[in-house]
Design a protein around this nucleic acid. Structure first.
Length: 565
DNA sequence: GCCGTTTTCGGCCCGACTGTTTTCAGTCG
């Protein structure tokens, strides 16, 4: 997959051009191309072979040539030339919040600043405030910007973001001046990681709302404070924006604030074509507002059906909407069961009975108890004898709880050669068999891929769990050839798991959409190790929805009798 | 650099906040 590599190259070009003060539209062309290329669910080399590069939006004659060069030569001469003209550290300077290309250019040309260290030195020496258009305040802002950057303005996982947003929303809600309030931004789009939290409020007294927001106990720094827009930094270093708008523009503001940026631009272009002007205040025809109160009304005015936030990435959703071809996305109510759950029999913290009760509470038809296999000692893997005892326990509980089918299964370790940790005669006794890799992550891409493919070929393996092994922030994904794995899944009718844990993000939305396009069945599981973790299902569903997956694409939307077990 | 139910040239999304100005440029989302 060269897609990401090419996108990265185009982004680097954009950054350098920015410092050079190039035509901003040319810069945006590179950024737009990068965004489009990385969100294509197919390998770009296929486009090269079939001479279809120009069918990608934002790719014209010039970028087509550049992509071809990268694919065939493995490098881009143009970028290498550009790099020679600009010191590498200067790009880091652009990362400092508040410092843009113009400032970076002045710093470089007037003070010779070529990296962050030097910038810091110049600021502290008071040299920056001697520059034209810069004074004491500018220096303070740069210092603060560097601090924010150093603290690691990293993305959070979706759950962390949701919890933080809930806390702000909860406290602001208590103000009687707040009419409506809702988190927007990438959080509302349910993106797997979130950088900033955006909250939209409708109110007739913005002053009150902003006053409260900027003085909440969690607030460490107020970055900006206005009547419609304010930004703060929490003590945990989370950036929160609040936007206050009057009720009549709530829908327009929600749309604008939810994004994505690319989706918004697309809609604004569409509005222009239809003779409208679209902003966060509404849709206007000759200064007369024709829509704005609700998002539905906004989309309708543009001649479109409502597009759910998860799809708003400019990955074809606007075109699909126009043609009435939007997918009917999978919903929480479609999920009939969770097929990957651990219990106290291995490394889980809840008994099977506790898991069963929780699953019934969620309205499931079935629940798969899939503890680890014998070789995985560290996670309390079950010996063959223990498996028999566990089966007895499940039989006993099945009599007690008639409203749900308890599936007896295992998450079977795939060994370093692709073999499975239980022999076939043991696997054949199980209701559900999941294959997963738990060791040997450092093997070559080819070997890891071959292991998974071999596991797919075992006739008892129904599901491959966490196929890339990533633990966000803790472990990088091991490298596999996802396309080969997808092909094997298709050939052997094996489902690929979307792991619902917010820190896993094993298969992202783009991977999943690629799977869908190839016709591979997906399964949304939680891999819960505690009964209450069955609730994590919502995050897996979010990933599936962002990948355009429908009920029919998901194995565990099937009723029990239709499950291919 | 891309792109065309007005265009193959001349556009390219729109508005808020800040700091430094004295009407606006830079940055951000």
């Amino acid at each position: 997959m060269k897609n990401q590599e090419i996108a990265n190259i185009f982004r680097q070009i954009a950054e350098i051009l920015e410092i050079k003060g190039e035509n901003p539209f040319r810069i945006r062309a590179y950024e737009r191309a990068a965004l489009n290329i990385e969100s294509i669910p197919e390998d770009i080399e296929v486009f090269v072979k079939q001479e279809r590069l120009k069918s990608i939006p934002g790719i014209g004659k010039d970028l087509e040539e550049k992509i071809k060069e990268i694919v065939t030569e493995g490098r881009l001469k143009y970028l290498e030339e550009l790099k020679k003209a600009i010191p590498k550290g200067l790009i880091d300077i652009l990362e400092v919040p508040g410092v843009g290309p113009k400032t970076a250019k002045v710093l470089y040309e007037r003070l010779g600043v070529r990296d962050l260290v030097m910038l810091e030195r110049m600021v502290h020496a008071g040299r920056v405030s001697k520059l034209p258009g810069m004074k004491k305040k500018t220096e303070e802002n740069i210092i603060r910007g560097i601090e924010i950057l150093k603290r690691g303005h990293d993305r959070m996982d979706l759950k962390t973001a949701m919890d933080a947003a809930d806390s702000f929303v909860g406290r602001l809600k208590r103000l009687k001046e707040v009419k409506k309030i809702m988190p927007a931004g990438s959080l509302r789009r349910m993106k797997d990681t979130v950088r900033d939290i955006d909250i939209l409020v409708s109110s007739g007294s913005p002053k009150k709302v902003m006053g409260k927001f900027t003085t909440l106990p969690d607030v460490k720094d107020v970055l900006a404070k206005g009547l419609t827009k304010s930004s703060i930094l929490t003590k945990d270093g989370i950036h929160v924006d609040v936007r206050v708008i009057e009720d009549a523009s709530y829908g327009a503001a929600l749309m604008y604030f939810t994004g994505s940026k690319a989706h918004n631009i697309k809609l604004r272009q569409l509005a222009i074509k239809k003779g409208f002007k679209l902003s966060e205040y509404g849709i206007f025809k000759k200064n007369k507002k024709v829509a704005g109160k609700t998002e539905k009304e906004m989309y309708r005015t543009l001649g479109l059906p409502y597009i759910v936030p998860e799809l708003r990435e400019d990955r074809g959703e606007v075109e699909a909407a126009r043609e009435g071809m939007l997918p009917r996305l999978v919903e929480p109510g479609d999920i009939k069961g969770d097929l990957h759950v651990h219990s106290t029999w291995s490394d889980g913290g809840s008994s099977i009975e506790e898991v069963v009760k929780k699953a019934m509470g969620m309205g499931y038809e079935y629940i798969g108890i899939t503890d680890h296999s014998q070789g995985l000692k560290i996670a309390g893997g079950l010996s063959k004898e223990e498996l028999k005892l566990k089966k007895k326990e499940i039989d006993r509980l099945s009599k007690k709880y008639k409203g749900i089918k308890i599936l007896s299964g295992a998450e079977v370790d795939i060994d370093s050669d692709g073999g499975l940790d239980y022999p076939d005669d043991v696997l054949s006794q199980m209701d559900i068999v999941i294959g997963a890799i738990h060791s040997g992550f450092k093997q070559s891409r080819e070997r890891l891929t071959a292991r998974i493919i071999k596991a797919c070929q075992n006739k008892y393996v129904r599901i491959i769990a966490h196929p890339t092994g990533r633990l966000w922030g803790a472990r990088d994904p091991y490298e596999i050839d996802l396309e080969e794995v997808l092909k094997a899944c298709m050939d052997t009718d094996t489902a690929l798991e979307i792991n619902s844990f917010p820190q896993r993000l094993d298969l992202n939305d783009i991977n999943c959409r690629m799977a869908k396009d190839l016709g591979v069945k997906m399964v949304i599981n939680t891999d819960a190790h505690l009964a209450e973790q069955l609730e994590m299902m919502r995050f897996g569903i979010a990933c599936a929805r962002r990948a355009w997956l429908e009920k029919k694409d998901i194995l565990n939307t099937l009723p029990l009798e239709k499950l291919p077990l």
